[in-house]
Write a protein that binds this DNA or RNA. Structure first.
Length: 255
DNA sequence: ACCTGTAACCTCTCGTTTAG
DNA sequence: CTAAACGAGAGGTTACAGGT
C-alpha cells in the first residue's frame, strides 16, 4: 500500500492521490518515470520526484525511523503490510492516576504475533528492559495509544523513546465508522476473549493491581491475562482494519 | 506574459472519544 | 473520575490551467 501512497507528499491529499491513480500512475516508480503529468507543474514534480526517491531508498533499507518522521500520523496504517512481520502490539495498565499526580505504569504488554512478553512494575519493568524489547521492532500497533499509552509512557518512564511508525487502530476504526472501545470492536468483528476477563475494563485492571500489591498472586495473574488478551486481540484486529482501510481508499478499483 | 476562475490543500477551533 | 489528541467542518489561501 505504501508504494501506492502519494498523500505523503506535501500538497497532495486524498483527491489528487485518487486522480493520479485514475491517470494510471499507481506507484512511486510510475510517478518518477512519468515525463510529465498534466495537473502537476514541472517545478512541483521535480520536487516530488526527489521526495519519492528518498522514500524508495528508505523502503529498500526498511528504514522505519525515516517513515516515522516523513509520514503524517494519520497515514501510518499504510505501512502495515511492509512492516507487519516486524510489528508489535503494545498495551499498558496503570494505577489509575496520571503521571505527575502519583500515576505509575503497572504492566506493559507486548505481542508480536507469536510471543507475548510482559513487564511488571517492581519485577522487570525498567526503561532499559522495555527499550530493549521495543528496539526489536519496526512498527508499533496500539489502540488509542497516541492518546493514552504512548504519552503516558513517555512521561512516566524517562528515557523511553519511540521512533518507529505507529498504527493507532482506534482512529482507523473511527474512520471506518465504528464506535466504541476495543471490547465492543472485538464482539463486532467476532473475535473471542477469554471468559475470565470477558467483562473486565480498564478500571478493573487498576483494582487488580491494588489487590496484587496486597499480596494476591491470583490478582496479578488475572491482570496479566487481561493485558495479554488486549494485545493478542489487537493484533488480529489490526490486520482486518488495515484491509478495510485499504479498500476504503479505492485503490483496488485501479489495480 | 498576465490575469482570473476553480479546485483542493492547510490551519484553526470545537467537540467527541478513549484510556486506566 | 481526568487528560489528550484526533476528526469534522468552515474559512482562508495557494497553485494550477486556460484564455486573452
Amino acid at each position: 500500500m505504501i508504494r501506492n501512497t502519494f498523500s505523503i507528499l506535501n500538497g497532495i491529499g486524498d483527491k489528487l492521490e485518487r486522480k493520479l491513480w485514475g491517470a494510471g500512475i499507481l506507484t512511486w516508480d510510475k510517478f518518477i518515470g512519468a515525463p510529465d503529468i498534466t495537473f502537476i507543474s514541472a517545478h512541483k514534480k521535480t520536487f516530488f520526484d526527489e521526495s519519492l526517491s528518498s522514500a524508495l531508498n528508505a523502503l529498500d533499507h526498511a528504514d522505519a525511523a525515516y517513515f516515522a518522521r516523513a509520514i503524517k500520523r494519520r497515514d501510518h496504517w499504510r505501512l502495515y503490510d511492509i512492516f507487519k512481520e516486524e510489528s508489535a502490539c503494545l498495551d499498558i495498565e496503570t494505577n489509575g492516576f496520571m503521571p505527575g499526580s502519583g500515576g505509575v505504569v503497572t504492566v506493559i504488554g507486548i505481542y508480536d504475533g507469536f510471543d507475548y512478553k510482559c513487564f511488571i512494575r517492581d519485577e522487570n519493568l525498567t526503561a532499559e528492559s522495555v527499550m530493549e524489547e521495543i528496539s526489536r521492532y519496526k512498527y508499533l500497533i496500539t489502540f488509542y495509544g497516541s492518546g493514552f499509552d504512548i504519552p503516558y509512557l513517555l512521561r512516566a518512564i524517562p528515557g523511553l523513546k519511540f521512533d518507529i511508525p505507529h498504527f493507532d487502530v482506534c482512529f482507523g476504526t473511527r474512520r471506518l465508522g465504528f464506535r466504541g472501545g476495543l471490547k465492543r470492536l472485538e464482539s463486532e468483528l467476532g473475535i473471542a476473549r477469554d471468559e475470565i476477563v470477558k467483562d473486565m475494563n480498564g478500571y478493573d485492571a487498576v483494582k487488580l493491581w491494588e489487590h496484587a500489591q496486597r499480596g494476591s498472586s491470583d490478582a496479578l495473574k488475572i491482570l496479566k491475562l487481561y493485558n495479554k488478551e488486549d494485545t493478542v486481540n489487537l493484533y488480529a484486529i489490526a490486520g482486518i482494519v488495515y484491509q478495510r482501510l485499504r479498500t476504503q481508499t479505492g485503490i483496488e478499483h485501479y489495480l
